[in-house]
Every structure is written in C-alpha cells, then in structure tokens.
C-alpha cells in the first residue's frame, strides 16, 4: 500500500540513494530527450504563437511579437465558455464519482469472493474503450435524437415540450462527459478498494462504528488516493474536451466549451495566437487547480 511507502518519519531507515550516478543519468537520457522534443518544444512554440501579432502587410498571417493583449482579448471574448467548461467538467466529475464509486466498491469489495464475476465486471467497465470514443458519443446522439426512443417517450409523457430536444442541452453534454469518463473515475478507485483490508472494516464495526460511520472513517479515507486520481483523470480531460460539446455530437451553440473555442480558432478562424493563448490559459488554470486540490486534500503522500 502507498501508506507504507510514504510514511514520513521512517526516512532514516530507508537506504540512501547515491545522488550522482552517471548510469542513472544515462538511463534517463531517452526520457529527457523525449520530453524536450515532444513537450518542451511545442510548449515554447505555443507560447511564441500566443504572443504573435497580425502581419500588417499580409492578411491572415502573423508575425512574432510580444502582443500580450491576446490574453486579455481571449479572456474577455471567451470568458463565458471558460466558466462553462469548468462548470461542465465539475458536474461531470461529480456525477462520474457518484456512479463510479459505488461501481468500484461493488467490483472491488462486494464481488471479491467471486473472482470470475469480478473480472467480468471489470471487463464490462473497460469494454467501451474497444469502440471509438467518437462512435460511442455519436451513438448517444442517435439515442437522444428527436426521432430517437428517449425523446419519443419523454415527449409522450409531456416532459419534453414540442420543439424541444435533448441533444444540444447542458444535460446532454454533461451526460456525454460523465458517460465517457466513468471508466477513468472507476478504475483508480477500484484499484484502491480492491486492496482494502476488509478486516479493517470488521475492526471498525467491532469498535462501535455503524456501517455508515465505518465507511466515512475507514473506507473513504483509505480510498482517498483513488478518488483523487479518479477526479483528476476525469476533470482535466473533461475541462478541455471538445467532442461532447460540439454541434456535431451532443452540443449546440449554447453549450460551447473552451475546447470547442480553441478548435474553432485553430482550424476555422485560423486565429492562431488566440487559440494558443487560450490553450495556455487552460493549461495554467488546470495546473493551479490541481495544485490547490492536492494541497487541500492533504493526500499528496498518497499519490
């Protein structure tokens, strides 16, 4: 368990690793090279692009500059979509946790005496990955479409008014995000719960902890690392997602998220500086959020 590996004051007992080792450095070289080529280079390129100014001579071209107003402009222009992205991602994370935790608990703990069923359930959680993300989202669009079965039923019982549809609403986008990220939420939580020592729960019960109390004081803290990883793995990609919210899938003009804006700026409007600035802002925002989250949860030692 992670706890044993990261207990803070046993450091003295751990073997001292030699600080300088040429072999270690040598072994790290491919990784460092990879990072420089595929992470640092595009990042620098992105930063340069984000500061470019329009070419005064040729329309549609940009020249290197230090045009930091790009940031101010995109914040002003796309503030609404940014807030919506964060909101949608937070909602999707919340719902994914709501569905993913019981699911992980069921597979990791309830099914523990039945290894075969446990493996089967795990496969079922992972199975959607075998089909393309786009296809699955399109399938939901079909199911939710105006001619589809769900809309038909909802219309007939009067929940859905005439002319209203499910797709293109906040509901359908958050639904799509939640659906697509449930495995990302479930698997890390499952990983912590499957190794949870059930005798600890018995001890909790024995020490006057009702099932609810034992869950709150024992199960939940001991699966915190999984919940942490799960929420991060869901929130980060969900905040930047541009498939679910796009008009071709489950979204509409009213549900545009920051990912869609970046996509449009890069590929349609070809306003590269604005797209780059937005990308960097999104990255910065998520970085700060994650840092605060990890710090506040006080579980950095569990990661």
């Amino acid at each position: 368990m992670a706890f044993t590996a990261f207990s803070s004051s046993t450091a003295a007992a751990e073997p001292v690793v030699r600080r300088k080792s040429r072999v270690a450095l040598f072994l790290l070289l491919p990784g460092i090279f990879y990072l420089i080529l595929f992470f640092v280079t595009p990042l620098i390129s992105l930063i340069i692009t984000s500061l470019q100014a329009p070419d005064p001579l040729i329309f549609g071209q940009f020249v290197n500059a230090f045009n930091w107003q790009n940031y101010a402009i995109v914040i002003e222009t796309y503030g609404e979509q940014a807030v919506r992205s964060a909101g949608y991602a937070a909602l999707a994370t919340f719902f994914a946790l709501l569905i993913g935790f019981p699911l992980a608990y069921f597979i990791g703990i309830t099914l523990r005496p039945y290894p075969l069923l446990q493996s089967l359930a795990l496969v079922l959680v992972i199975a959607p990955f075998f089909i393309s993300f786009l296809l699955r989202t399109l399938a939901w669009k079909q199911i939710f479409s105006t001619e589809g079965p769900v809309s038909g039923i909802l219309s007939s019982i009067g929940i859905l008014g005439p002319g209203e549809s499910i797709t293109g609403t906040t509901f359908s986008v958050v639904f799509g995000l939640t659906y697509n990220f449930i495995p990302f939420m479930t698997l890390p939580i499952y990983a912590t719960l499957v190794s949870l020592d059930l005798r600890l729960l018995e001890a909790g019960n024995d020490l006057y902890g009702s099932p609810a109390t034992t869950f709150r004081t024992v199960t939940l803290p001991l699966s915190a690392a999984g919940v942490m990883s799960g929420t991060l793995l869901t929130f980060i990609p969900a905040a930047g997602d541009y498939i679910n919210a796009s008009r071709e899938f489950l979204g509409s003009a009213d549900t545009t998220m920051i990912g869609n804006v970046i996509e449009t700026n890069f590929l349609v409007l070809q306003n590269f500086p604005a797209a780059a600035a937005l990308s960097l802002l999104l990255m910065g925002f998520i970085l700060v959020l994650v840092a605060v989250y990890v710090k506040r949860s006080g579980t950095e030692e569990l990661l």
Partner: peptide, 20 residues
C-alpha cells in the same frame, strides 16, 4: 444485533489497526 451494537471488543489476530 450487529457487531457495532454489542458491548464486545476484539483484539484481532491481524491487529487490524487503521493505517491512516
């Protein structure tokens, strides 16, 4: 009655101390 309602405490063979 359930375990948590009984005036009984157990010293478990595995200790079962809460690691967190």
């Amino acid at each position: 009655t359930k375990a948590y309602q009984r005036p009984v405490n157990t010293v478990f063979q595995s200790y079962a101390l809460f690691p967190h």
